[in-house]
């Protein structure tokens, strides 16, 4: 069990391996799209890990990248269609970033590094854990950005009106793109303090 927990902290895909930042940060201005994004990536990562691992012995090595891309894009399109059908508002917020899950390096990276050489069930676990590790960072970043930037969480106001009356202001910079990067930098700093003393 222990070896699967690495992606959540020690081997976190974003913080340590710097994978998959691309498609992620733009959806962290608010908590809700970040959670949906984290969930979608986890599903895609787990499913494609599982499938690739199932068919790993039949894949000709010369075309394995193409096969991986096909399988990943299949699941991404499925997720996209489902989001559009069942949680329309959120799918609008995520716009093209759902599609960009395809090029999320975490997924391709896990397929190459794990699924191609392991049995289906461990691969499924590995996919879930990496997806969650990625989602964790996303949610933490989104938590601070929404709280400090808009004074809300999950669209509910949490900063009391009396604070605003006393002169408290939302930090508008928090919701702009650059702050996401700076927050990640700070999270990495904090994580390094905790894990390697």
């Amino acid at each position: 069990m222990k070896k699967y927990l690495g992606p959540l902290s020690k081997d976190n895909p974003i913080l340590v391996q710097t994978l998959g930042v691309c498609s992620a940060l733009a959806v962290t201005a608010q908590l809700k799209p970040a959670v949906v994004m984290a969930f979608s990536v986890t599903v895609v990562c787990a499913c494609s890990n599982f499938i690739i691992s199932l068919i790993r012995n039949t894949i000709p090595p010369r075309i394995r990248i193409i096969v991986q891309l096909l399988v990943v894009s299949f699941f991404v399109i499925m997720v996209d269609l489902l989001l559009q059908s069942f949680v329309y508002d959120v799918s609008k917020m995520l716009s093209v970033f759902v599609g960009l899950i395809i090029t999320n390096c975490i997924i391709m990276g896990r397929l190459e590094a794990f699924a191609l050489s392991h049995k289906p069930l461990p691969s499924l676990m590995d996919g879930v854990m990496n997806g969650l590790g990625y989602g964790l960072v996303l949610v933490v970043v989104a938590f601070f950005r929404e709280l400090l930037g808009s004074g809300t969480l999950w669209n509910h106001q949490v900063v009391p009106d009396s604070w605003y009356a006393a002169g408290y202001l939302n930090n508008g910079l928090m919701i702009l793109p650059p702050m996401a990067l700076i927050l990640i930098g700070v999270i990495i700093w904090a994580k390094n303090r905790v894990t390697e003393r």
């Binding site: 201005a29 930037g149 919701i175």
Partner: peptide, 8 residues
């Protein structure tokens, strides 16, 4: 809107 800055 498609993609205006949230909060602004």
């Amino acid at each position: 809107h498609k993609s205006e800055t949230p909060g602004l």
